[in-house]
């Protein structure tokens, strides 16, 4: 063999496959959280590499807020069809009804925080002992502190001060009944690593990741929020029509678009490389509320 060295993308890929197989080997009922976004789509690709020609040893699970981009939902269903894997969908709207939760109010009212209730109920319904997620440590500073195997108590809570030490690449997945583990195979990937992998593997994504024309509300902090039935539009709002793409795909209510002309993977990579603003900073409206917004949500069971 002429090449006796893995490049950095191959190293990251091998590590992620290793983590997915550790989940499969250590847990009885895992699930892979899948939203149709780029990170969870990369996870599906990695799962194919980890388990083919077999089936995935876990179903895909989508916690549907009801505020999704239709393009992401269409993509989700198409990918599920292609892979032949099982998809479970649970709806936040049902949890709101069953638990008599209050719908968040306000202009860009987001059901993002309510997802946690649906997720915890679904974990209980199916007895999932591990949930695989596409979270990355570079996204946000509370995430930078999280383990690859992150143990949650029976209330789904994360205790950042009592995390298990995680040594070498030995992952301790032993838990008590009622507890579960959140596993993060692409913890060590950055946004750019994800895009470079998408390019290398030629992975298909929802169309909204590429430049398209869209009618948006221009917020006072200069963020572009797509016009949809889920946001409240006032007479005083500035409406604009722009060429945009999305850097992340969350709810339509809390994900902002970025102006872009990038219609190909290469063009997206070029724009991200030149960007002066971080992924979450540019696109997530819900992180701006407080310095510890993510830490607080994670502590109560959020991904």
């Amino acid at each position: 063999m002429s090449k006796h060295k893995l490049n950095y993308i191959e190293q990251l890929e091998s590590e992620a496959i290793y983590i997915l197989r550790e989940v499969a080997g250590q847990f009885e009922r895992p699930a892979l959280l899948f939203s149709g976004g780029k990170d969870s789509t990369v996870l599906v690709k990695l799962a194919e590499k980890a388990f083919r020609p077999g089936k995935f040893p876990f179903p895909l699970l989508h916690i549907d807020t009801g505020h999704n981009f239709p393009e992401a939902l269409a993509f989700r269903d198409e990918l599920v069809k292609q892979t032949g894997e099982k998809l479970i969908v649970r709806h936040v709207a049902d949890t709101i009804k069953a638990k008599k939760l209050s719908e968040p109010k306000g202009k860009f009212a987001s059901r993002n925080a309510l997802q946690t209730y649906t997720l915890l109920d679904t974990i209980e319904e199916f007895g999932f002992d591990a949930c695989i997620g596409g979270a990355r440590r570079d996204e946000e500073k509370a995430r930078a502190k999280e383990r690859i195997f992150s143990v949650r108590d029976e209330f789904g809570q994360w205790n950042p001060k009592l995390q298990r030490p995680e040594l070498w690449n030995i992952y301790n997945g032993k838990i008590h009944k009622g507890e579960n583990v959140r596993a993060f195979p692409i913890s060590n990937w950055t946004e750019l690593d994800v895009w470079n992998y998408i390019k290398k593997e030629n992975i298909a994504l929802p169309s909204i990741y590429f430049s398209h024309e869209r009618e948006c509300v221009l917020t006072p902090s200069n963020q572009l929020v797509a016009v949809s039935d889920y946001i409240q539009i006032d007479k005083t709002d500035t409406m604009v029509k722009k060429q945009v793409r999305y850097r992340t795909v969350g709810d339509m209510t809390c994900t902002a678009a970025v102006e872009s002309k990038a219609t190909t993977i290469d063009a997206v990579i070029a724009e991200i490389t030149a960007s002066q603003i971080s992924e979450r900073g540019e696109t997530r409206i819900d992180d701006k509320v407080s310095e510890a917004a993510m830490e607080d949500r994670k502590k109560i069971g959020y991904f």
Partner: peptide
């Protein structure tokens, strides 16, 4: 210093990863 307690106390509690 990613955690609130770390910022409050001005110390690093847990292993932090940066890329």
């Amino acid at each position: 210093d990613g955690l609130r307690a770390e910022r409050e106390q001005g110390i690093t509690i847990d292993v932090a990863y940066k890329y």
